[in-house]
Design a binder for these strands. Structure first.
Length: 537
DNA sequence: CTGGAAAGCGCC
DNA sequence: AAAGGGCGCTTTCCAG
């Protein structure tokens, strides 16, 4: 089909998806497709630009022919703005409101493409758009449509079991409090802890100065009284039950029998994806009970799940961007980075290191990525701020390249007003020049973190595009299911698991930066196969 | 009854 | 004055 597409819009009736393509003469074609997924919770409409792409494909319009995407343009230009649906962008950029007709949408898309494309070009965002976001959209659409299999019976069993335990913990807590109250209410719990039981009031936190009952506070109070200990147990169970155990089975699609998340490509300030309805990027893994929920994500009979994750990707990006000799050398030699930091900062040679040394070093490494303060590190390590400050000073002495990088980066962001990833993706940080120290400190943490988190996001997105292409090229049936920031989940026939593993690992390790740039440090990828998501060892 | 803010917490 | 970056979901609580 000979179309010069200059835009994409979307509109949908129940069970139907429609794509609108627009050419240079502002004539619109409507391509409708039936049989796309309906959201059982929202039977009204599909309403998603990725589905519109599939509708176009169904009508024989090549996805490769699409050259503009106004939602993605708008996002790349203003990633800290929340909404990029056509309605929102039209109001923001054209001061025009949609009346609803498909032809009007097509018209607006055309006008917006003409307005936004030159801005994208002027801000050197074309590479990010063409090499990353545009090709990624179709990959995400396919992942959403594929969905992931969930064993609802496993969760139903857990539901009954959790009910019993939650009930027992509730009764025990009431007994310890000497009164019944709403355990889900931090306000009521605070009254019990700090008034009735006279437990020591923690430092007031947050803008409301409410008496905190957060987990780290309760952990300390648990040394003094049984009640906070039981509340912590109650909270873990209640959280898992209300957020996952009771919700996920209800979201299994009646026609596919699988769970279909939505991946949002225009939802984060840094370039990461997000996931919702349900969010499959926050499935529990940390605790024993949580891991049982993860184990309910399973492969079809005769198939296996394949997991692949980047190891320490943000620290590797930091090594590349900063060119710090110690950090680069450590990664080039394949060292355990937390052990190396323990050696550099705590002065303990690898063979003399205890678990505690490593825990502290790990906290410091993570803290660096997030722009830690002495106070924050002290609170997390349970030490004095002065001691934490000595660690931070020691870190920047030993990793002088990181210190230098941070200073140059802040200087650049002050001058430009935005931070950039290795690929040129931007994040505006206007508060970097604020006279309010609070705002400015926050901005400086953002300025350091955004290029690290954002470059890591760029890298895995590139890997996803390449993996999708190669799986297809090799004729494999293995399909991509989920992305969880530095991890990918696949499902495929057992018979091709070996080939798929090699393909995925190779693509992730050899991910090519636009312009043929190579990272100064290797990208290390771990893989695992198993019948369920918790068993990918 | 609905919407939104807050608190809290799941993940990377 | 706050005190580590990025998300989404649940519950409570309160205002309209």
């Amino acid at each position: 089909m000979d179309l010069t597409l200059t835009g994409l819009a979307f509109s949908a009736a129940p069970g139907e998806a429609a794509g609108v393509a627009l050419n240079g003469k502002r004539e619109a074609w409507l391509a409708a497709g039936r049989g796309f997924l309906e959201d059982p919770k929202k039977p009204k409409a599909v309403h998603d630009e990725k589905v519109a792409r599939l509708a176009l494909a169904a009508a024989g319009i090549e996805l490769g022919g699409v050259v503009h995407d106004t939602a993605l343009y708008s996002y790349l230009l203003q990633p800290t703005t929340a909404k990029h649906a056509l309605e929102d962008v039209a109001v923001r950029r054209l001061s025009l409101r949609l009346s609803g007709s498909v032809a009007e949408k097509a018209d607006f898309v055309g006008r917006l493409a003409g307005l936004l494309r030159p801005e994208v070009e002027g801000q050197e965002l074309v590479t990010v758009f063409e090499a990353i976001e545009q090709p990624l959209a179709a990959v995400l659409a396919e992942m959403e449509q594929t969905g992931v299999r969930l064993d609802p019976r496993a969760l139903e069993e857990m539901s009954a079991e959790f009910d019993k335990e939650i009930d027992a913990l509730t009764r025990r807590t009431y007994q310890l409090a000497g009164v019944e109250f709403n355990l889900n209410s931090p306000k009521q719990l605070g009254e019990i802890l700090y008034e009735k039981l006279q437990l020591p009031l923690p430092r007031r936190r947050g803008k409301t100065q409410a008496a905190s009952t957060a987990a780290d506070v309760l952990e300390e109070l648990a040394e003094l009284h049984e009640l906070p200990a039981r509340v912590l147990e109650y909270r873990e169970l209640a959280k898992l039950k209300s957020t996952y155990i009771d919700v996920l089975p209800a979201k299994i699609h009646p026609r596919t029998g699988r769970l279909h998340t939505s991946f949002h490509q225009t939802g984060t300030a840094t370039g990461r994806l997000s996931s919702s309805d349900p969010n499959l990027q926050n499935i529990p893994i940390r605790t024993e009970l949580g891991n049982r929920i993860r184990a309910a994500f399973v492969a079809e009979p005769g198939w296996q799940l394949l997991g692949a994750d980047y190891s320490q990707i943000e620290l590797r990006v930091l090594a590349h961007l900063s060119d710090d000799p110690v950090l680069v050398e450590a990664f080039q030699r394949g060292e355990d980075i937390h052990a190396r930091t323990a050696q550099e900062v705590l002065g303990v040679p690898p063979l003399g290191q205890t678990g505690e040394h490593r825990r502290v070093a790990k906290m410091i490494n993570f803290g660096i990525i997030y722009g830690l303060t002495a106070y924050g590190l002290a609170r997390r390590l349970g030490i004095e701020p002065a001691e934490a400050q000595r660690y931070i000073d020691a870190y920047f002495r030993r990793y002088a390249g990181v210190k230098e990088f941070r200073e140059q980066l802040l200087e650049e962001v002050r001058g430009m007003g935005y931070a950039r990833t290795l690929f040129g993706r931007r994040r505006p940080i206007p508060e970097i020049g604020s006279r309010n120290a609070n705002q400015r400190n926050f901005a400086e943490r953002t300025a350091l973190n955004s290029p690290l988190q954002g470059t890591a996001a760029d890298l895995i997105k590139l890997a996803m595009i390449e993996i999708h292409r190669r799986l297809r090229q090799e004729g494999l049936r293995t399909r991509m299911l989920l992305q969880v920031h530095d991890e990918l989940l696949f499902e495929g026939p057992e018979t091709e698991a070996g080939r798929a593993t090699e393909l995925v690992k190779a693509a992730m390790e050899r991910v090519q930066l636009p312009g043929g740039v190579r990272l100064k440090v290797p990208l290390v990828v771990g893989t695992g196969l198993g019948p369920n998501w918790a068993a990918l060892k």
